[in-house]
Amino acid sequence: MQLLAQVSSETDLYVAQNIFFAVIAVTMIYAAFRVVTTANVVHAALWLVVVLAGVAVQFLFLGAEFVAVTQVLVYIGAVIVLFLFGVMLTRASMGDDETVAGEKRAMAAIVGVLLFAVMAMALVDSFEDTRVDIDQPQGVTEVSDAIFSQYIVPFEAVSVLLLAALIGAIVVARKD
């Protein structure tokens, strides 16, 4: 990604990047669409992998290398596996999910479209063609320095949260 970033800073056109971005973005949107529409639970989980990988690539575009790596490790590595376990344990029909009532879909679609309309309007209105230039990818050092100095309190809070979630999950799911 560093290579791409350097190229882009010299040429002002970002052609290569934009093409690449468009390909990834379209893939992601299609995959996300399949996640929320496919009738097969396992397929949905696999489509989710595509979206998550796409998100990781987007992080690379934005120069956030460490976040991209974490995304791959935690999400694709751990979360998806957790999902697949969940699918197996609940013996949710490995095949097709029963069709969802049409009325609900329409309601959800209306809400979704409405939300998108509002957000798109706000975004286009306020950022128009603001550019984001990434000259230098963010180093891991920078991120870790920030976490362990400026953001130490949120970091500790997240640690406690994870512990609480751990205990909570055990308490909720154990049999007795």
Binding site: S8, Y14, Q17, N18, F21, A25, M28, I29, A32, F33, V35, V36, V51, Q58, F61, L62, D97, E98, V100, K104, R105, M107, A108, A109, V111, G112, V113, L115, F116, M119, A120, L123, V124, F127, E128, D129, T130, R131, V132, D133, I134
Partner: peptide, 25 residues
């Protein structure tokens, strides 16, 4: 690159997610 291309992509994903949360059984 434009800031908005990322933000709009994120908005699309968000709304698809909302759709999924509301419509899935």
């Amino acid at each position: 690159m434009l800031l908005n291309q990322f933000l709009l992509l994120s908005a699309v994903l968000f709304c698809l997610g909302v759709y999924g949360v509301l419509a899935r059984k």
